[in-house]
């Protein structure tokens, strides 16, 4: 894979430097068969340094997860070597099974099969709380 030119795939650009590995893990990119390039500390005019992830397939990126980890990224969908779509990322209002509630008094601590759901309760300060016990996500 030539990391500069993807024919059909996804480029996640403007990742805050150092966050690419976390995104790689939470998006489940390790499970993909196609080539995936993770490029760290690329020079950026805007922020000095950034990370980039290139995925050589039309993988369906979970923009909620991206929005939670790093709302400043851009997602470009590449088709026939050209940018076919730019996805804007927003802070998701709800996250399911991305964060785990760590409150030992929470019902999720005793019922393993329950989905761990967090709601955005304060957009300005990016605060998420468990829907069951209202414990704040760290």
């Amino acid at each position: 894979m030539n990391i500069d030119s993807i024919k059909n795939g996804i480029v996640i650009d403007h990742i805050t430097a150092g966050k690419a590995m976390e995104i790689y893990r939470l998006l489940g990119l390790d499970a993909l068969d196609c080539s995936v390039a993770l490029i760290k500390n690329v020079a950026s005019r805007k922020t000095g340094k950034k990370d980039i992830i290139k995925i050589d397939s039309d993988f369906d990126v979970d923009t909620d997860i991206l929005g939670y980890i790093d709302p400043f990224v851009t997602v470009n969908v590449i088709k026939d070597g050209k940018i076919a779509e730019k996805k804007t990322i927003e802070l998701p209002s709800e996250l399911t099974n991305v964060l785990k509630c760590k409150n030992p008094r929470c019902i999720t601590s005793v019922e393993q099969e329950l989905p761990h759901i967090f709601k955005l309760t304060d957009r300005e300060n990016r605060i998420y709380r468990c829907i069951y016990c209202e414990t704040r996500a760290k």
């Binding site: 409150n103 008094r105 929470c106 019902i107 999720t108 601590s109 005793v110 019922e111 329950l114 468990c130 829907i131 069951y132 016990c133 209202e134």
Partner: peptide, 22 residues
Amino acid sequence: KEGAPLVAARNASIPVINAGDG
């Protein structure tokens, strides 16, 4: 446990009143 009545409310087909969760 905190949130148990909410779990019940999300799965019941009748109204649930929380009578105290932890």
